[in-house]
């Protein structure tokens, strides 16, 4: 029975940690759902171990804890696919940002150059004409 109490304690700490990360806005809600889901599943399984046994028997698994491993493994698989999807999206956005900034910078620099040339021209013209101040 001890291991189940430990399981309940662990999942409660885990859930608390996740909620705390969300509270401090370290973890965005859209990515936290998976973790909340997992915490709740562990909590339920620890509180009602007979459910785990029941499901294990139903799907033909003789050693109930291996069902736990299976669930954990599948969950990790799902999480990692989700993570790489998020990563791909981030990459796409970063690329676009770098492109836009580079174009903007190039155009700004170009504008700056033309303006300096114009200014140089004006200065030459002013220098050629004698002004009141130059007396």
């Amino acid at each position: 029975m001890n291991i189940y109490i430990l399981g309940v304690a662990f999942s409660l700490v885990f859930l608390f940690a996740v909620v705390d990360l969300m509270r401090r806005r370290v973890l965005m809600e859209q990515y936290s759902l998976l973790w909340l889901g997992m915490g709740i599943v562990i909590l339920l399984v620890s509180m009602f171990p007979q459910w785990l046994n029941g499901i294990a028997v139903a799907v033909g698994i003789y050693y109930a804890p291996s069902l736990l491993f299976l669930i954990g493994f599948l969950f990790m698989l799902g999480t990692m696919v989700h993570l790489t999807v998020v990563l791909s999206r981030l990459t796409k956005r970063t690329v676009r940002l770098v492109q836009e900034i580079a174009i903007l910078k190039a155009e700004l620099a170009d504008e700056g150059r033309t303006r300096t040339e114009d200014a140089d021209q004006t200065r030459t013209m002013v220098a050629l004409q004698p002004t009141e101040n130059s007396k």
């Binding site: 970063t94 690329v95 770098v98 492109q99 900034i101 580079a102 174009i103 910078k105 190039a106």
Partner: peptide
């Protein structure tokens, strides 16, 4: 156009 980060050939051409 100067890319501040190396984007690879595809990203550069798309710029």
């Amino acid at each position: 156009i100067n890319l501040s980060v190396n984007l690879g050939i595809g990203g550069a051409v798309q710029t």
